[in-house]
Amino acid sequence: MDIFKAGREFVRREGRLVERRLFATLFEGADPAGVVDTLRGYQNPDGGFGHGLEPDKRCPDSIPLDVETAFDVLLAAGARDDEMVRRACDWLQSIATPEGAVSLGLPVVEQYPRAEHWGEWTYQPGLNPTAGLVGRLIELGIDHPWRDQAAAWCAGELENGFPEDAHAMHESMIFLEHQPDVELAKVKEWLPKLAYYRAAADDPSYGVTPLHFAPTPDSVWRPLFDDQQIEGHLDRLIADQQEDGGWAITWEPPGAAATLEYRGIVTVGALRTLKAYDRLPLS
């Protein structure tokens, strides 16, 4: 199977408009403005993003994780819309704790279909997603009072130690890569202690892998992993491509449409990673 052609056809056939336009920007030279135009449909009048931009919940209301997803799409496309992002920051500030922390989700999701893992724990403010949101804003070059407040909170939290969950650690590392004097050895020592960290390429379970922490060879975090480990995960990524051209997911979204939507997201992500590591012959 031709990895690229099969992945392209899956995205064209099953992906949402936002993933199709992102694919066209990344692999076909399309104008990133088209990605921004698509994201506008997910932004609410309050400035936040919703409408299932992150497909595990079908809630139209603004949700912090949907804001994070919007930032990820902008960064992937190399797109800019400062007003769009600042409006999202205004909304984050409106729902943050007095210290600036935000949660992944909000209780309003309970009114709509959602994946089983969406529950009380997603309503607790924490480094996931606060640290990741701040790191993404720094990469987007957006200054905002909420960003400064949240960054100070994240720095204080991380001074007390790293989180114990690989998802929260991933978010924290997005923040830390923009901070001075990052201690790579300290991070490397902590990784094996994380819940949901999938260090071995042959581990079939759900988890966060070295390729999530270092999705490109020039990542700040690439030195945490030896060549054999990275190559093993790249081999596994290639092997995991399905017969229909897309990549599968290892959790249960709330329905068939959400499953296809998330598969579109991870398929574009897989192709991006393989391209970055020069493992994707384009044809």
Rank of each mutant, 00 (worst) to 15 (best):
L92W: 00
E99I: 04
A77E: 05
V187S: 03
G119S: 15
E157L: 05
Q93Y: 00
P113H: 09
G78E: 13
A151C: 06
D181N: 13
V134E: 03
G126A: 09
V73D: 01
Y123L: 15
M169K: 03
N160L: 09
G161D: 09
W146T: 06
E99N: 08
V109F: 14
D72L: 08
I142S: 03
T130D: 03
A152G: 08
R147S: 00
A115G: 15
M84V: 12
S172Y: 05
L158A: 05
A185F: 10
V108G: 08
D148G: 08
F162C: 02
E110K: 14
P163I: 03
S172D: 09
W190L: 07
A168V: 10
L137R: 08
A151M: 02
D143Y: 05
T130Y: 03
A96Y: 09
E189M: 05
A155N: 11
R114S: 10
E171H: 10
S94T: 04
H117I: 08
W190H: 15
G78T: 12
G100E: 01
S103V: 08
H144S: 06
N160S: 06
E139G: 13
P113L: 11
Y123I: 14
P180E: 07
R80M: 06
R136C: 09
Q149K: 10
V85T: 04
V108Q: 13
H170V: 01
A76Q: 08
G119T: 14
V108S: 09
V108A: 13
V102S: 00
E116R: 15
P113Q: 14
S172P: 06
L184D: 06
